[in-house]
């Protein structure tokens, strides 16, 4: 920040007044007072500008904070496991994501969606303890997860029945509505920030 008088003649008068200091102290004091007043006015204007900028930054930060909180809340409301939907989308995934010894178990899980080790063992003809080990290995690979309430392993592959088709359609509509409301909310916040700036 540079403090300078708003009148370009002032520099010269200041220099002249300095030169005339020994001769006319009063004139010198008057000129000095004028210069200081001008500098103070300039400083005040500059501080007002800074204050306004700070207010704008505060309003923007507030909008960002609200947006982040809002998006975090939405994320927290999503069903657990949504991130892993699509872990196995095709036969190629079966081949690429699981080692050979786990593929039969994984095929059963793709068919059943959720199952205990005993249920898988019945389908594969292997022992329950071996299937339990295989399910845990698949869990460590991030392909399966465990349902907290039942202890069943779950794979996120969706079988769409007619009722689920309707549910899915509703979910899609809700999602679209949610996205619209999010967009609206963010637009409102941006407008608030713009208003605050003005």
């Amino acid at each position: 920040m540079t403090i300078r008088p708003n009148n370009s003649d002032t520099d010269e008068s200041f220099a002249n007044s300095s030169r005339s200091k020994p001769d006319n102290t009063l004139q010198y004091m008057i000129n000095l007072q004028k210069d200081l007043k001008t500098a103070a006015d300039s400083l005040r204007l500059e501080l007002l500008g800074i204050h306004k900028e700070i207010e704008e930054i505060k309003a923007t930060v507030s909008v960002l904070k609200d947006s982040i909180e809002y998006l975090c809340d939405r994320k927290a409301l999503e069903k657990p496991g949504d991130d892993t939907v699509g872990a196995i989308t095709s036969g190629l995934d079966l081949l690429q994501k699981a080692p050979q010894h786990l593929r039969r178990t994984l095929q059963v899980m793709v068919q059943l969606n959720s199952a205990t080790a005993s249920q898988v063992a019945r389908r594969t003809g292997k022992s329950r303890s071996l299937e339990s080990d295989y399910l845990n290995q698949l869990e460590r690979l991030g392909i399966l997860s465990r349902k907290d309430d039942t202890g069943k392993h779950v794979i996120f592959v969706h079988e769409r029945t007619r009722s689920e088709e309707a549910d899915e359609e509703n979910e899609e509509n809700e999602r679209n509505n949610d996205e619209d409301s999010t967009r609206e909310k963010i637009q409102q916040m941006q407008q608030t920030a713009r208003d605050a700036r003005q």
Binding site: T89, V110, E159
Partner: peptide, 12 residues
């Protein structure tokens, strides 16, 4: 993607 999942499941 979802239909491919369903197709795999139905082939199995």
């Amino acid at each position: 993607k979802k239909q491919r999942q369903r197709s795999l499941k139905r082939i199995l």
